[in-house]
Nucleic acid binder design. Structure first.
Lengths: 347, 347
DNA sequence: GTTAGCACTCAATATAATAGAGTGCTAACA
DNA sequence: TGTTAGCACTCTATTATATTGAGTGCTAAC
């Protein structure tokens, strides 16, 4: 599709623009990238590349800038895949070693790591709660009339909630209910708990009438967990270091997007089914307010099933090779950490 | 200290500047605020006020702008206290009614409310975990070799953590340990748990040797909770709507502060002991990067004891009267919500 | 003590001039 | 036929220069 020299010119333009954020002229390319031809020749090639839609000109007397399509071609065909430095890998491993207490903490830490290493804004997403499967429930008696429900899903999400209980119900009753629920709910999809189980619970607990009502209430209200995903952000203000965001209006539209977690999770969920790292460039993100941005994303998970995703958000001019390497390295480690966390060291 | 007319002039300057963000000239005051005197007279008063340090001039041919000291005088002596509109109060109450499941959720919601109503950036802080007192612990058996520790403090914070346990320990053993710990730790300060209890636990469980080691490990590692406060932010990007932040450099220093949770919590913790709403203006915040900002803060709590604080961050030119009213209204409601949440409806 | 009047200051805006980077095209060259 | 030197042209960015206008401080009169 593109002959070797055109590829080289495009590569030079993309690399130079990523590095300098200045439109790239023919002379610069000839000087810096030694393609063995004169600026005039390069100008001809550039005219062709522009006609094909890979680069564009901000105005007549400026150099060329890659278009979304140009970046896409770069990512798909020209980009050299990088690796992290030893130091960076060590940083990641150490962070994970010291934070393996709690899923939320691990994800927050992941967001910070991502942004710290890359200087881009990081987005970390946990999967929709309702998609998980039931793992364990425990109702803990905390005092007269008060109890706490703790619900754990196989994706590692833990929900807790304080509820009121009739004074007549003691710790043993709560244990009974817990046991029955655990038995009945094993492996069920959390989203469907309410629908499927009312009858069964009824039969099981019919003999202990005073406990029954409580259990029913619990299923109706207590398990009505918030089903939203959770989004962790890291390095929000990193984006301000990019020259394309020296204008406050742009920053505003971007930040207001970052506050709408719904939008973000839609974008990232779109790549859950993809293998490995996915890059969405500019308009490919299909969102007006970040049409000048790109996102490098991947999902993490257990046993090959995704339970969440991470993404790096930067200008379309971002360093894709580096972002790609970082996202790749971190997702695979994150998946390991999650498995260890949810299954215990032995397994 | 200031005669009535000077007060009126100062009030006019502060109000006008808060409303317009433009330096206020003598003519504007005479026209808009009908003090019954001519611009020339006002100029004389302004010269006095400037000499006293209440106002300053950005440059010779500009109007006057309140100084930190001017705002301070305004807040202490001139400000009229406002109330929220019915609609706003309703909004707050409704939000709280629908979110009373979980402390974290309530605080996140509070951050959003604050920023939504005021258009300033909201900071919501929970108290230092170690300062709370032990309320309940439960070790839940989740499968062979795996258990979850749930720790609740009287300030409502809940910590959960998955731990490995020896395969030889079954659910009943975990119950035993839970029971002993609950008994021994009742009401103790969480920070001191480790120091005070090792001996006692030892005596209590000496007979059940196989459980003892596990309990010891738990005390040593499992209860070593993260002691940091938690900070919830709302409406970070609201600050961008203020004309004083049209310059990206300022935004950057501010946002980088907002990412340092430590700094923020120090500021807010400083007002935990104060009754009611506290206002810190500009340099009073003692932090270089927000010397052009002010914060309106208050603590919320139970039984008069603070368990956290909230704050509104805006430019020194912020609308103190309104921020004051909002912070006041929301802290008192938040305190109620927290009490209800942690004690159950009846009490 | 108050006020009108006026010269003065200084940022902000508008206007013009200049420099410089980069292009596209043409014509000559290998 | 592909490559290249040369050159006129375009357009932004920068700098220099006027112009405007809000607002002041001071003085002198009321």
């Amino acid at each position: 599709m593109l002959d070797a020299r055109k590829k080289n010119v495009l590569l030079a333009i993309v690399q130079d623009y990523i590095a300098t954020a200045e439109p790239v002229g023919s002379r610069t390319i000839a000087r810096k990238y030694k393609l063995g031809v004169s600026p005039a020749t390069i100008r001809n090639e550039m005219a062709d590349l522009e006609e094909m839609g890979f680069i564009e000109q901000p105005h007549t007397s400026a150099g060329r800038v890659p278009s979304d399509r140009g970046y896409r071609y770069y990512v798909d065909h020209l980009m050299k895949h990088e690796e992290l430095t030893m130091d960076e890998e060590k940083l990641v491993l150490n962070s994970y070693l010291s934070k393996v207490q709690d899923v939320g903490e691990v994800l927050r830490c992941t967001g910070n790591l991502l942004s710290q290493i890359t200087n881009y804004t990081a987005v970390v997403l946990t999967t929709h709660y309702g998609k998980g499967r039931f793992k364990h429930i425990q109702i803990i008696h905390m005092g007269p009339g008060q109890a706490m429900v703790v619900l754990v899903s196989d994706s590692g999400a833990v929900q807790h909630r304080i509820i009121d209980v009739p004074d007549s119900i003691g710790p043993e009753d709560l244990d009974t209910i817990s046991r029955v629920l655990n038995h009945k709910l094993q492996g069920k999809s959390i989203k469907n708990i309410r629908l499927t189980l009312i009858k069964e619970i009824y039969l099981e607990l019919a003999r202990q009438k005073h406990v029954l009502n409580m259990a029913m209430d619990l299923i109706r209200d207590g398990l009505d967990v918030k089903t939203g995903e959770k989004v962790y952000l890291g390095g929000i203000f990193n984006i301000l270091n990019q020259p394309e965001f020296h204008n406050v209006e742009k920053v505003k539209t971007l930040l207001s997007l970052l506050e709408q977690e719904k939008e973000l999770s839609n974008i990232i969920e779109g790549v859950f089914d993809a293998r490995g790292v996915t890059v969405r460039i500019g308009e490919e993100l299909e969102n007006e307010s970040i049409k000048d941005c790109s996102m490098v994303m991947a999902s993490y998970g257990m046993d090959g099933k995704p339970v969440g995703g991470i993404g790096l958000l930067g200008p379309t001019r971002m360093d894709y090779a580096r972002a790609y390497a970082v996202v790749d390295y971190i997702t695979s480690n994150l998946s390991l950490v999650m498995e260890r966390l949810l299954r215990g060291r032995g397994k």
